[in-house]
């Protein structure tokens, strides 16, 4: 069973619909007891970092996420909240991955980075199994995670940034696999594969 974390910033319908299309059993919850029962966690998110973190804290989900050893897939803002902090409202994140989110420089190109883009570079990891630098994924974001030692795949827009980040059981993707056509479905299936092999 996959649990989708329900909090103020979730794009829950889209993620739930994607899992339904793949016939993957799932539940949407903000209760620790439900999360404890799940085999894997999907942590979606759109919108602003500050209210999102406040909403997580309200339900104690921030502490739960920090201590869990279950596979967690952070999507978009969910991935960004893995980091220590963000320039967005000078907010604090969960800090399970080191680094600070930065804003794209809009003097060079349009911001948000909106649309379909490919990986510029990709390392081996079960989450990105089968992917190279040809496949397109759908992005919508104004803040980005700079590359670091946990970067699994990079993307280029204005500058290079972390598109996929993995540290132990924490896996994050900046794009929206639930909105990225066939390729996005394959990535979600890769995550389910990781969950079921645990």
């Amino acid at each position: 069973m996959i649990a989708i974390i329900n909090y103020e910033a979730g794009n829950l319908a889209s993620v739930s619909n994607a899992l339904q299309r793949l016939t993957i059993p799932h539940t949407i919850t903000n209760k620790e007891s439900e999360l404890d029962k799940a085999d894997g966690i999907i942590f979606p998110g759109v919108g602003h970092a500050t209210p999102a973190m406040a909403s997580l804290r309200e339900n104690g989900l921030d502490s739960w996420l920090k201590q869990t050893t279950k596979p967690v897939l952070g999507i978009c803002l969910g991935m960004q909240l893995f980091y220590e902090s963000s320039e967005e409202g000078d907010s604090e994140g969960l800090g399970v991955i080191p680094g600070r989110l930065k804003k794209f420089d809009s003097s060079q190109h349009k911001v948000p980075h909106m649309g379909w883009n490919t990986f510029s570079d990709v390392n081996a990891h079960p989450l990105v199994k089968g992917f190279g630098t040809e496949e397109y994924f759908y992005y919508v974001h104004s803040y980005y995670a700079p590359e670091n030692e946990f970067t699994t795949a990079s993307c280029h827009y204005i500058n290079e940034f972390s598109s996929v980040v993995c540290r132990d059981n924490y896996m994050g993707v900046q794009f929206h696999p639930e909105k990225s056509g066939k390729e996005g479905s394959l990535l979600l299936q890769n995550f389910i594969q990781i969950v079921s092999s645990e």
């Binding site: 339904q20 299309r21 759908y138």
Partner: peptide, 10 residues
């Protein structure tokens, strides 16, 4: 709701 269930693009 129906479209969202079927469609895997934005």
């Amino acid at each position: 709701e129906k479209i969202a269930l079927e469609l895997d693009i934005p």
